[in-house]
């Protein structure tokens, strides 16, 4: 099946410093893909660059295709149709994404006018339907309210309504619940998954919370220092991660039940983008690193028909896992 969105060798540099160093990622129709990794690993930049939302000093190369059409370097008019139309994005800090001096109705109607062929009363009716859909009580009256009159969770619901205004095929949700409390986060995640089912919409869920991604995605890509280092079906990734960084991330998560064990912390910190090691970027922190790891950055290579890993010792790591499984 041809991918809905296909990213190939995407590279981004800010003032000459590379921060995305060759990202390959494909998104199928209706699929939920999670993107996890340390802050600064390039999760947000991947999608901001794909949608042409980075400032001028960013140099972007590679290819991002939507249904086969190239988005990088596409004319502004075409990108305007894609953004908010076929691909919508919601952000971590929802309050800053809404205009504080305009009512919710104005902002929703603006989004609708941009992407949908609706006139007069139909626009307002649709705005109301969307607000209803995302679970804002008393939607008709609340349309006339301003952003500050809503709680954080409600503002995020409104952002989701705005994202749905263009009937998108893909929703990019960048840390959509990070600023919210646990019980409100659970509400928003449930809303996202029910909307996704109803509209068969694909979703990219960017999060630093492995639990959130594990529960809400079919497939997960782990990013480290501007590259994807492992990609696998969610259940497989969490059950047996192969890349040492993915193993480290999962080992670093304290369990909520069962016996308490010492956390397997990854030593050190992420490398400075301006001083990236020559070989594998994870080598300075990797317990499995060998001489050969410092020679060249390992490419993403398949280890099963739906799993890829960028590690020269992946074979050893995988054999070790199979060995354990065979016992």
């Amino acid at each position: 099946m041809a991918a809905l969105v296909n990213i190939q060798d995407l590279r981004v540099a800010f003032s000459g410093v590379p921060v995305l160093r060759g990202v390959d990622l494909a998104l199928q129709k209706g699929e939920a893909v999670g993107l996890v990794g340390e802050s600064g690993s390039g999760k947000s930049v991947t999608w901001l660059s794909a949608l042409g939302l980075l400032p001028r000093q960013a140099t972007v190369t590679g290819s991002v295709r939507l249904d086969g059409r190239e988005l990088l370097g596409a004319p502004a008019s075409e990108l305007d149709q894609v953004r908010g139309g076929r691909i919508a994005m919601i952000f971590q800090d929802p309050a800053s994404a809404l205009n504080p001096v305009l009512t919710i109705r104005k902002q929703l109607c603006e989004a609708l006018a941009l992407h949908r062929d609706l006139q007069g009363n139909a626009v307002k009716a649709e705005a109301r339907r969307l607000l209803d859909l995302v679970g804002i009580p008393d939607a008709g009256r609340r349309l006339e309210a301003y952003p500050h009159e809503f709680s954080g969770g409600q503002v995020q619901r409104i952002m989701i309504a705005m994202a749905l205004a263009g009937n998108p095929d893909v929703l990019i949700a960048d840390e959509p619940t990070t600023a919210l409390d646990a019980t409100i986060q659970a509400q928003i995640l449930e809303l996202l998954s029910s909307i996704r089912r109803e509209f068969a919409m694909a979703m990219v869920l960017i999060s630093h919370d492995l639990g959130v991604v594990a529960e809400n995605c079919d497939r997960v890509a782990v990013m480290y220092a501007g590259r994807i280092v492992e990609q696998a079906p969610a259940n497989q990734l969490f059950a047996d991660p192969v890349h040492p960084y993915a193993q480290g991330l999962i080992g670093a998560l304290p369990p909520l039940d069962g016996p308490r064990r010492r956390l397997t912390a990854i030593p050190g910190t992420v490398p400075d983008p301006a001083k990236m090691p020559d070989g594998c970027a994870f080598a300075p922190r990797c317990a499995m690193a060998a001489e050969a790891c410092n020679l060249a950055a390992p490419p993403l290579a398949p280890i099963a028909n739906d799993r890829v890993v960028a590690c020269i010792r992946a074979e050893a790591s995988r054999r070790a896992l199979l060995g354990i499984a065979a016992e």
Partner: peptide, 8 residues
């Protein structure tokens, strides 16, 4: 509290 290995 979401947990890897458990769907919602």
């Amino acid at each position: 509290s979401p947990a890897p290995g458990r769907r919602s």
